[in-house]
Design a binder for these strands. Structure first.
Lengths: 143, 143
DNA sequence: GTGTTTGCAAACGTTTTGCACAGGT
DNA sequence: ACCTGTGCAAAACGTTTGCAAACAC
């Protein structure tokens, strides 16, 4: 169950971690790859994926698997929720406190033992809000 | 904005709908394809995908984009949440009422206009609960 | 007859993997 | 020296798409 693997400290891993922590945009692996490449021009996309996986295993970063899009990564490991813009797809942090009651809340679980949840919010980001003024659309939230 | 397309009633679409509604397992496109193929041996996977998309557009089915897995489909369109088993990956309905307060709840949104959310629960299903008795594991909920 | 829908196969975007070599310890 | 980590390229995976033929209307 433990992560018993011996980790080596490589420049690739260090730069990936630095660039991820320097970003607030929750980049995808490809975006991070482009960013890291500016400092390590010979790095490969596979290395980025492998290191993100390792860092996630070791609990140093968070993996955001949001509905219907590529996986994004977050250098912040403290728990918080995210909002996603319906229009441009950007992702931002929400300072909303976690709803741990969601897990402990008594409910009919069909025999499941529930021990976690994933919650993401959808909406329009400030800049897309401005551009969509007056456009009527059916906001359909998916649960 | 409207769905103005003229739909034709094809046996493929009808059987896909029937098989989806007959299942409580929230099948993936591939699983549904295997199921439908028993009745329509010449159907193709592409047709299954296309019809699922059409049925979703027309509001006849729901698309479940759960964290870190293929898209699953639900013949029930009434809103409800889902639980996913950490061990076997199976998905079941939860009769828990929706938390619409989550959307209207006052919170610091960073300028976003929030109009929807996605919530999914994680845990162990009845049969995996039995098999993992006594195994200590760190339950890590992802938010 | 018109235009949607089908089957097939190829293409797609994201992620994973096999391999030989480089490099951290 | 050992064995993890790297770069590269190919493969895997789920999904979408182009096309000509089939079929619903």
């Amino acid at each position: 169950m433990a992560t018993n693997k011996l980790r080596r400290q490589t420049p690739q891993r260090a730069v990936i971690m630095e660039e991820l922590c320097a970003s607030k945009a929750h980049p995808t692996a490809a975006e991070l790859f482009a960013q890291v490449r500016r400092r390590l021009p010979r790095i490969s996309l596979g290395t980025v994926y492998r290191n993100l996986e390792v860092l996630h295993e070791d609990g140093q970063i968070r993996k955001l698997e949001l509905a219907g899009s590529e996986t994004r990564f977050d250098g912040t490991t403290t728990p918080h929720y995210h909002v996603r813009c319906r229009a441009c797809g950007c992702v931002r942090d929400l300072p909303t406190p976690l709803h741990d009651k969601l897990v402990t809340m008594p409910m009919e679980t069909g025999g499941f033992r529930i021990d976690g949840h994933r919650l993401e919010f959808h909406g329009l980001c400030p800049s897309c809000l401005g551009e969509t003024e007056g456009v009527s659309g059916t906001a359909h939230s998916q649960h």
